[in-house]
């Protein structure tokens, strides 16, 4: 009988009392916009395209962000400079569909696409939430300061010939018989 009362009534009463005491606890609510919360650097907010340390576009239009995107809100088209560097002819994010999941950033092999702590992206016109490359591209390296994909990758571009990437030997002389 006692255990019944303890389990049914007493425990409920204790719960009620504990919740009641919360009346005198300070609320956790942050009074945005008067109060600005601290945004952590790895917050997943507005998406940007960054540049490599040499100031060139990092995006190589590999399409991995687009395929990783669960809502399919990224569309781009690969094109190529004279010297063989791939870059996007256009790069479009439909932020009215974006769910800020960050899969694109995870998929990006060149650290080009990054999510930033900016979350204030509301627009009165939905069409304004479609961002093109001009809107996305920033003039810095974003969170990753040193990485330069073309310094690592074997593909030849202007200013970096065959055998000049990270860990590469001089190109082979096909005519040579030396071991």
């Amino acid at each position: 009988m006692f255990s019944l009362i303890r389990d049914t009534l007493l425990s409920q009463a204790v719960t009620l009392w504990r919740v009641f005491r919360k009346l005198f606890v300070k609320a956790d609510t942050v009074q945005y916009p008067e109060e600005r919360p601290y945004m952590f650097p790895r917050w997943r907010g507005r998406i940007i395209l960054s540049r490599d340390p040499d100031g060139e576009e990092r995006c190589v239009a590999c399409n991995l962000c687009a395929v990783a995107c669960p809502v399919d809100c990224i569309a781009l088209q690969k094109t190529e400079t004279e010297d063989g560097r791939w870059y996007p002819e256009f790069f479009r994010i439909n932020f009215s569909r974006c769910i800020m999941c960050g899969f694109c950033e995870e998929a990006c092999p060149t650290n080009a696409i990054q999510l930033t702590p900016d979350f204030e992206m509301a627009e009165y016109v939905r069409q304004d939430m479609v961002w093109e490359k001009e809107d996305l591209l920033i003039d810095g390296t974003g969170k990753y300061h040193d990485y330069n994909f073309y310094r690592v990758a074997g593909k030849q571009i202007a200013g970096k010939g065959k055998g000049e990437a990270l860990n590469e030997a001089e190109p082979v002389d096909v005519r040579s018989l030396l071991p």
Binding site: N63, A66, V67, C69, V71, D72, C73, I74, A75, L76, F90, R92, I93, N94, S96, R97, R126, Q127, M129, V130, E132
Partner: peptide
């Protein structure tokens, strides 16, 4: 199945 850009490829013309 992995076709990408469904909601963005024509968004420059009309977001709907």
């Amino acid at each position: 199945e992995r076709y990408s850009g469904r909601t963005a490829m024509k968004a420059n013309l009309n977001v709907h």
